[in-house]
Simulated assay, not measured.
Amino acid sequence: MELFARSWTALRTAVADLPDQDFERPSGCTGWLVRDLVCHLIIDAQDVLITLVTPTEKEPNRDAVTYWKVVEPPTGDDPLDALIVRLAAAYEQPELLKFHLDDVGAAAGRAAELANPDLRVSTQDYVLTVGDYLGAYVMEWTLHHLDLIVDLPNAPEPPAETLARAREMLERITGAPFPESWSDKNVLLIGTGRRIPTEAEQAELGELTKKLPFVLG
């Protein structure tokens, strides 16, 4: 839960510090500008709030790692993706996106801080403890932080400890250990298809290259 707070605070701070013109830059999510990604983060924050007030008595069937699964790469035909772009454009001014993310995002952060980590909650037909649910979101926030700054070389990166945790989760989700010498950031970027490995990196990966990318959903 502590890593949830660190990763979420770092991501929200990075968005808050962006000048308006950077909202028109490409993000690491194919087909999305930074403004579209920020709009998606608002919806993510709403999902966190909804889930934290959706308790259940059922037994957990997922944890922070098994919440995620490897899925087929997106085709660009998802109607929700198109909706995000339209919603983001409707804000018109980056300041409005910033305000909404700060407002809803701060509420999600406070709700997470106050939540009982042992409480069971339900989302997407999954049942998790609050601690595991928030732990799963360390992956979401860390990857989207990398998406946010892909075209912003001077922007702050995710905290080192959340990069390390996200790497650990990716390797456990996929059952695919990456070279120990690689940085956590490069493992996440290459492992999830956000960056194409160089020839030298492909040589280090060996047969694992054929399995890339690992798209999480």
Rank of each mutant, 00 (worst) to 15 (best):
I43D: 14
V48T: 15
W32M: 11
P55Y: 01
L37Q: 07
I42P: 01
R35C: 12
L49E: 12
V38H: 05
A45D: 15
I43F: 03
C39L: 11
L52D: 11
I42Q: 09
T56K: 00
V34D: 15
D44N: 10
V48P: 01
V34C: 10
E57Y: 08
T56L: 00
H40K: 03
P60M: 05
I50K: 12
D44Y: 00
G31I: 02
D47V: 10
T30H: 06
H40E: 02
L37A: 06
Q46F: 13
Q46G: 13
V53F: 04
E59G: 00
L41K: 04
V48I: 15
C39R: 13
N61Y: 10
T54Y: 00
L49T: 06
R62G: 03
L52Q: 05
D36I: 05
L49Y: 05
R62F: 07
L41C: 06
L33E: 11
R35V: 09
E59M: 08
T56Q: 01
V48W: 05
W32A: 07
V48Y: 04
D47R: 04
L49D: 09
C39K: 10
D44F: 03
K58G: 03
I43T: 09
T51I: 04
V53E: 15
I43R: 07
K58L: 14
P55I: 01
E57Q: 12
T30S: 14
L33F: 14
P55K: 03
Q46M: 07
T56E: 00
V38L: 05
T56P: 00
I50A: 13
I43Y: 12
H40V: 01
K58D: 15
T56F: 00
V34P: 05
I50Q: 14
H40Y: 11
I50Y: 15
R62D: 08
I50H: 11
D47I: 05
D44M: 03
W32G: 02
T51V: 13
P60A: 05
L52S: 08
L49C: 06
D36A: 13
T30C: 02
L52V: 07
H40I: 02
R35L: 14
L52N: 04
I43S: 09
V53H: 11
D36L: 06
D47A: 12
R35E: 15
E57A: 13
P60N: 09
Q46Y: 13
P55S: 01
A45T: 12
V53D: 13
E59P: 00
K58Q: 13
V48K: 05
V34W: 11
Q46W: 09
I43M: 07
I42G: 01
R62L: 08
E57D: 11
D47Q: 10
D47W: 06
T54I: 01
E59D: 08
K58E: 12
T30F: 01
D44V: 11
R62S: 08
V34S: 06
W32T: 07
A45S: 15
L49S: 06
I42K: 02
Q46H: 13
A45W: 10
R35W: 14
L41M: 15
L49I: 09
D44W: 00
R62E: 12
G31R: 05
L33W: 08
A45F: 10
Q46T: 09
V38W: 03
T51H: 03
I50C: 07
L37C: 07
N61K: 06
P55V: 01
N61V: 10
